[in-house]
Simulated scan of single mutants.
Amino acid sequence: MADSPREGKVARPPDFTQLIDLASEFVGGKVTQALRDNPSFKEHEYTEFGKWMDGWQTRRKRIPGHDWCVVQLGIQGVIRGFDVDTSYFTGDHAPRVSIQAANFEEDKQPEIPQREVRTGAAATPEEFEAISELKSDDWSCLVPMTELTPGNPASSHNYFPVTSQQRWSHIRLNIFPDGGIARLRVYGTGQKDWTAGDPKEPLDLVTVAYGGACVGFSNAHFGHPNNLIGVGTATSMADGWETARRLDRPPILENDENGILLVPGCEWAVFRLAHPGVITQIEIDTKYFKGNSPESCKVDGCILTTQEEEDMVRQKWDLPGHKWKPLLPVTKLKPDEMHVLDSLTPELQDVITHAKFTITPDGGVSRLRLKGFPSSICLLRPREKPMMRFSVKAGFRANL
């Protein structure tokens, strides 16, 4: 476990917390304490079972054993770290925790019985019998039994880095022997079996569900760019990428001869694709952004090795312009609308590993979809031609 901060000091979160929460309800995670919002505290509110707490809290155990729960991840993938958050649980937090994991293939997902919402009640014998089919006692251990800190504001986050490179679909959170936890976050990257599926069907190569990730951005004042590549459609403006208003906007705005705003600046985000490939169609959704969508945008792509990406992160993505290949020219955007656009590579000639999404001058976008074909199974379209295979030199990240 990462060192816990001393009382009164707020430690810098580890880098893995910049990844997506694979267990969040917003990506399909199935357990009530895996929420994306931060926990809250109502100082004077009580229920018939005791103090109102925003999280999972078990009864004071009076029988042998310890308490646990099973979480089905919304996105199957590689786990990089956990955050066991005990916010506001100061006299009743779980004193110790361990975490196990298992992987069930998509077509062999076990049926997990849904617990009834019965606050203050333990699982029934029938529910215990049903969940025993998972044999979760024998799952792999990712975090051994470790003490937790109570939920004081400066020390409520308990971070656990994970080195396993395996793909996981379920986790089991054990608390010893009982107590409360406000939030459980499972940070990692999605991972897809690229040999499965129809090779003629384009895939969203940037989605977090398959392993896409934001690796750099200029501004994220109101929402992180990772939201752009989230699962499903956005639920609100909070579920998109929104920047602050640029302070270099001219006092009076003017258009050029093509109707594009003449402004000096822009905002951008760079994404690593889940798999090197060719982009054939681009979807840009400004849903919910009715008075604050960008005026225009463009998309560029490039091919980088792992080392080159790391260099660019350190250099804050100061990549020479000629390295970028245009995928979408400057295109005007409309508010609260889905835009479906063809890429500039209809013949499937340019394989890329990274994409840069640039908006002008600022604003918010709900979703970005970069649809195309993985480099190993690219097919030409629309003409009927034999399968083309593209090779990518060594040196790329393992999850590509």
Rank of each mutant, 00 (worst) to 15 (best):
M1D: 10
A2T: 15
V10I: 14
A11L: 04
L19Q: 10
S24K: 04
G28N: 07
G29Y: 03
R36P: 08
D37T: 08
D37V: 11
G55S: 09
Q57H: 13
R59V: 10
R60L: 15
I63A: 15
P64L: 13
G65M: 10
D67R: 14
W68C: 13
L73A: 13
G77H: 06
V78M: 13
R80P: 04
S87P: 01
Y88S: 02
Y88M: 05
H93Y: 11
S98E: 01
A102H: 02
P110W: 00
E111G: 00
Q114V: 14
V117I: 07
R118L: 06
A121V: 07
A122E: 11
A123P: 09
E126N: 04
S132C: 03
K135G: 00
S140G: 05
T149Q: 13
P150Y: 04
A154I: 00
S155P: 03
H157Y: 00
N158F: 06
Y159M: 01
F160G: 06
T163A: 11
T163M: 03
T163R: 07
S164Y: 06
W168P: 01
R172T: 08
R172Y: 03
G179N: 01
I181P: 01
A182F: 00
W194G: 03
W194H: 02
K200W: 02
K200M: 03
E201F: 04
L205E: 01
Y210A: 15
Y210G: 06
G211M: 03
G212P: 05
C214V: 09
H221A: 14
P225A: 07
V231E: 13
V231I: 15
T243G: 03
A244C: 10
A244N: 09
R245E: 15
R246I: 07
E254N: 13
N255E: 15
V263Y: 11
G265W: 11
G265L: 08
W268Q: 12
V270T: 14
A274V: 11
G277I: 05
G277Q: 07
V278W: 00
I284P: 03
T286H: 07
T286K: 06
K290W: 11
N292I: 14
S296Q: 11
S296R: 11
C302A: 10
I303E: 05
L304V: 01
M312W: 14
V313C: 07
R314P: 04
Q315F: 09
P320D: 05
W324A: 01
L328W: 02
V330L: 12
K332I: 11
L333N: 02
K334G: 14
K334I: 08
V340T: 14
V340H: 00
S343C: 08
L344G: 00
E347F: 05
L348D: 08
I352L: 03
I352A: 07
H354V: 08
D362G: 11
S366M: 10
G372F: 08
S376W: 02
L379I: 11
R383T: 05
F390Y: 13
G395M: 12
F396W: 02
